[in-house]
Design a protein around this nucleic acid. Structure first.
Length: 465
DNA sequence: GTAGGGTTAG
């Protein structure tokens, strides 16, 4: 749209660049940037400069965000905070800390947001000590200690660093009634596996008339899913809750419901939810593929995957892992091989350990033990104990003595301290009739387990060759 | 007349 008789200025461009950020228009934003430079607005308008930093960071173009930041003549606290957040989001801990230090040298006073950015950094980087230092620093400086933002960032930081008690302590001293703190507490509890507490917190919110949102609800549904077998009643209860509160069109809520229903054994409800999704995204597709995979419905996984491709969605590592699991649980060997090969060749997704592990299992179960071993060696020169253990199991089932010996040896080399792998190796040797070796390995395993349990070595353990 | 921001899936 062209504006007539109105001369656009810095403020106009501020809104335009903001819009490009929201609408994901990277090229347009770049054009606007050069326009801003030509007009010499950057030096006189800190708002404009700051929105450019955010624009580049929203697209992950760190280099240009950095350049835009350097162009701002006197950066203000917002510019600094944006850069610290960007470094934090890109896991550049040292750069973020360096910038924070620099900011203090320049005598720019950190705001609550500065601390939130640093706390997020320690959450992401699992830096508990650093997080505690920031916590103490916040108390010392006394800036906005009571703010909901800082409280919820602290609850999250302790939760992500597995320190549940500190997380609860902060929550109990915080604005307990704030949605932000409740949600952070719920995600921490969920992350740490305190599922019952997630339900209790949710009930408490309802009783206290704290209006929950889609994050609280999806966390609660997720907690339900993680129960070994959620009851259908509870799934329906939370589903009704979603409908009543108007969150039944939220993608996150619906994905957790797909998961919860399938785990409760009611895959048809998962199907219904998926089919009713107005425009399923990659999460929706992967949720239903995962549900089918867990139920051993391999062909359904493949059909949904096909539909996903036809809609132009790009599958990622998680999607492929779910499809391969589906093929594995249904014994679809050729299909699994085809999908696995297509990851790299067609979809430009590189398989990691989990995909290789799934394929080793798939091939091994099908009796293609040599092929499985070849793939395992290809995954990494070492392989890992899970893959070797799965291969050894396949060798036992399909009586492949040759590969089995190698797998047993590798497994014991990789896990000298884990008796369960040694017992598996021992069972393999009994299976192929080498009872002496089987007994020897079992004795070593038992001795090691005992010495580990007792705390010191009772029996001199000889290396097995 | 213009801003940054907590939790967030498969």
């Amino acid at each position: 749209m062209k504006m007539e008789n109105v001369e656009p200025n810095g403020v106009t461009f501020f809104y335009l660049i903001h819009g490009c950020c929201k609408e994901r228009l990277v090229d347009k934003g770049r054009q606007l940037h050069s326009h801003v430079i030509k007009n010499g607005w950057l030096e006189s308008n800190i708002f404009l400069a700051n929105v450019l930093v955010d624009f580049y960071s929203a697209f992950g173009i760190l280099v240009d965000a950095d350049k835009a930041f350097e162009c701002i003549p006197p950066q203000d606290v917002i510019s600094w905070n944006s850069m610290v957040s960007i470094y934090a989001a890109n896991d550049l801990l040292h750069e973020a800390v360096r910038l924070f230090e620099e900011m203090r040298l320049w005598d720019k006073h950190p705001s609550a947001m500065s601390f939130v950015a640093l706390l997020n950094l320690s959450s992401r980087g699992k830096e508990l000590l650093f997080g505690k230092q920031i916590h103490n620093f916040v108390i010392k400086v006394g800036i906005d200690y009571g703010s909901v933002l800082i409280q919820s960032a602290l609850i999250d930081m302790y939760g992500k660093n597995d320190d549940v008690q500190s997380s609860i302590d902060v929550f109990q001293c915080s604005h307990e009634r704030s949605l932000e703190c409740c949600n952070s507490m719920m995600t921490s509890l969920l992350h740490l596996g305190f599922l019952q507490d997630v339900f209790e917190l949710f009930s408490w919110m309802v009783c206290e008339n704290i209006v929950f949102d889609e994050v609280s609800l999806s966390s609660t549904i997720k907690a339900l899913s993680l129960y070994s077998s959620p009851s259908l009643d509870n799934c329906c209860l939370l589903h009704c809750c979603a409908i009543k509160s108007g969150f039944d069109s939220d993608s996150m809520v619906l994905c957790s419901l797909i998961d919860a229903y399938s785990r409760s054994g009611q895959i048809r409800f998962s199907q219904q939810i998926f089919e009713a999704l107005p425009s399923p995204n990659i999460f929706g597709f992967t949720s239903i593929i995962n549900a089918y995979a867990q139920k051993g419905m391999g062909y359904e996984c493949l059909a949904v995957f096909e539909e996903m491709i036809q809609r132009g969605l790009k599958p990622d590592k998680v999607t492929f892992l779910c499809i391969l699991l589906g093929c594995n649980h249904s014994g679809l060997v050729e299909e699994g091989k085809m999908i696995f090969d297509s990851m790299r060749t067609i979809h430009d997704v590189y398989p990691d350990r989990r995909h290789y592990s799934c394929m080793v299992d798939l091939l091994g179960r099908a009796g293609l033990v040599n092929e499985a071993e070849e793939l395992l060696m290809h995954a990494s020169s070492e392989g890992d104990s899970v893959m070797w253990s799965s291969l050894l199991r396949s060798c036992r089932i399909h009586q492949n003595e040759h590969v089995g010996r190698r797998a047993a040896k590798r497994l014991m080399d990789l896990e000298p301290e884990d008796p369960s792998f040694w017992l598996q190796a021992s069972n393999f040797y009994s299976e192929i009739g080498e009872f002496e070796t089987a007994i020897y390995i079992r004795e070593v395993a038992v001795a090691r387990k005992m010495s580990r349990d007792i705390g010191y070595s009772l029996i001199r353990v000889h290396e097995f060759h």
